[in-house]
Design a protein around this nucleic acid. Structure first.
Lengths: 339, 339
DNA sequence: CTGAAAGCGCTTACAG
DNA sequence: CTGAAAGCGCTTACAG
């Protein structure tokens, strides 16, 4: 019935008047900064509890020249947007940000178009930024640096003075490749994506590292980079079959899915006829038959750590230049030896 | 070398002083509101161009009691976060928002925990909200209504006074089911997810509608709801095989993927032994072998329309209570008759 | 310990 | 057509 619909927003002024104190006092009670009598503080706090008053974060921000927003930059192009990676990451970031009373503001960018990011920065809508993909030539990173905005990247970047958090892709890929080599597999192919992504480079390096460790070297003609669509993958798989490759490693599960489909179409059995592994596994592959050997990373955790790092950085604390997170090698049916 | 690092932010005051006019005038030139001489306007605008000045959106917002932010609420629970749906949607929303100089702020919620949403609202950080999943009993929707915040849902909701944008799932599912029925398939199973999601209900209704149209009725013992994990799916598939079902329709591609895996494991051929279709297709299934009959929706487009609807709504314009978007039935190998 | 006042960077009646 | 002033809802030296 009578719905209490008086949506007139209550301000710090109302509180002050009601309590017969100054707004300075109210502000101090809330923020905990500045000297204030504990009796007064309690009185204010109690009233605020009861009335469920929440300060206007925007006004607070303006007064402090802060926004209490951080920007989260993710790819707006379609092939990448499929990956659960960015979303999982966002879950972690959002959880931490929210717990520090910050909000997360999204910008979609592509390799050529970063105008959404520019808008957000030029409009002074964020205090710091998280970049979720690092490029060899990184427009977003350069832009942010030129503007003097604090930012941290998820993913390694060559530039040493950029704060970065990443999984240790290189070591991880080295370890997985090494295990396969030790099982006597030699004729190994590698299919990777966009070479301008730093992570692609890291995975490739790890792959090569493993061969060096065993004092042998990979067959470069079996390394395929910049593989971006299913048509290319199909052609490559045909070639691999012809050349009787023993094992194919995919740089991510999207590539892996296409490879598996093509093999299925050609009636090639996994792992009997050819083994398959993936350097990056999301739930896309999770329930595949056969189960797929792959590397696992805790992406949500990485999101959380990255967010905390950015917050510290904005706070003026000194933070590690590069934080490298762990991984898990998960050996499954797809690389088993059939006796 | 000398890097022009004077990051002292320039304000409307600086402009005014520099140009020997009042800040009122500068403000008017920028906003285009209020009478102003075209000569003065040009002068100001020109200066602003050259100096690349951008007004502080937060301050502007405070003065207008707006935030120029909209909230985008997405599920933070893991099974759902896998779906590219939310991300694709976000691409559309973000594109439109950005073009109207709004930003998108993320809140992760689960069915039981909506505190991230509450924070954002209580802190006055958004002017309106987009809900990306509708529940039969919808906590976020109820909360927003009680707060008097404009919002629109992606997905149908029972509550008629909520602004909503959706694909016409019911008609789409009716049509796909109808086509299969007309091909003489009768022994049809349906596997669906969380029944408290409105979309699940809509799909189920469409399925039943199709049977009614052909004056027959579905076998209720072949309708499985609230199927949430692969273990359940495996058990169901075993049952379907036993009962020699002709066709199984999955409510989404995540369910479908698991069904296909189980069938593969059991060496059941698709479509020779059993036909398979999906009521919702993302790129997850895109390159499956055999290709999967399914419904297709333009999710990015829906995101764009939803965002525009919300913006209109916040503007006080009257908007359609419910906007229903189209779909595409995509018939593929997985339901073909093998002669 | 408490408050009046100035300030954060804009907008917008109101007056001229 | 233009400007001085008040206001958006907070914070924070500064003074007492």
């Amino acid at each position: 019935m009578d719905e209490m619909m008086d949506k007139k927003k209550v301000t710090i002024d109302d509180i002050a008047r009601e309590l017969q104190v100054s707004k300075t006092t109210v502000s101090r009670a809330i923020s905990g900064k500045g000297r204030i009598g504990s009796a007064t503080r309690e009185k204010v706090l109690k009233y605020i509890q009861e009335t469920n008053y929440k300060p206007n974060a925007v006004a607070k921000g303006l007064a402090q020249s802060k926004t209490y927003n951080i920007g989260f930059v993710m790819p707006g192009d379609y092939s990448l947007v499929d990956l659960p990676f960015f979303q999982e990451c966002l879950v972690g970031v959002s959880e931490i940000a929210s717990s520090y009373d910050y909000d997360v503001l999204i910008s979609m960018v592509s390799e050529r178009d970063i105008h959404q990011l520019e808008r957000v920065i030029d409009n002074h809508k964020v205090d710091g930024v998280i970049l979720t993909r690092t490029l060899v030539k990184d427009k977003p990173a350069e832009f942010l640096k030129s503007k003097g905005i604090p930012f941290v990247t998820i993913g390694t970047t060559l530039n040493k003075d950029v704060i970065q958090v990443d999984n240790d892709h290189r070591s991880a890929c080295r370890e997985l490749t090494g295990i396969l080599l030790m099982r006597g597999i030699r004729k190994m192919a590698l299919i990777g994506g966009n070479k301008s992504h730093v992570v692609t480079q890291k995975r490739l390096q790890g792959f090569k590292d493993a061969f060096l460790e065993q004092s042998c070297s990979p067959d470069n003609s079996l390394i395929y980079m910049d593989v971006e669509n299913s048509v290319m993958i199909e052609k490559i798989v045909e070639e691999l079959i012809d050349r009787q490759v023993e094992c194919v490693i995919c740089m991510d599960d999207s590539i892996c899915t296409h490879v598996l489909n093509k093999l299925r179409k050609e009636k090639i059995r996994v792992p009997a006829d050819i083994k398959v592994a993936s350097f990056y596994n999301s739930s896309l592959l999770e329930s595949n038959v056969p189960s797929i050997t792959s590397l696992n990373f805790d992406v949500k955790e990485m999101g959380m750590i990255t967010c905390k790092t950015l917050l510290d950085c904005m706070d003026g604390k000194t933070v590690h230049g590069r934080t490298l997170l762990g991984y898990e090698v998960s050996l499954k049916e797809s690389t088993q030896n059939i006796l």
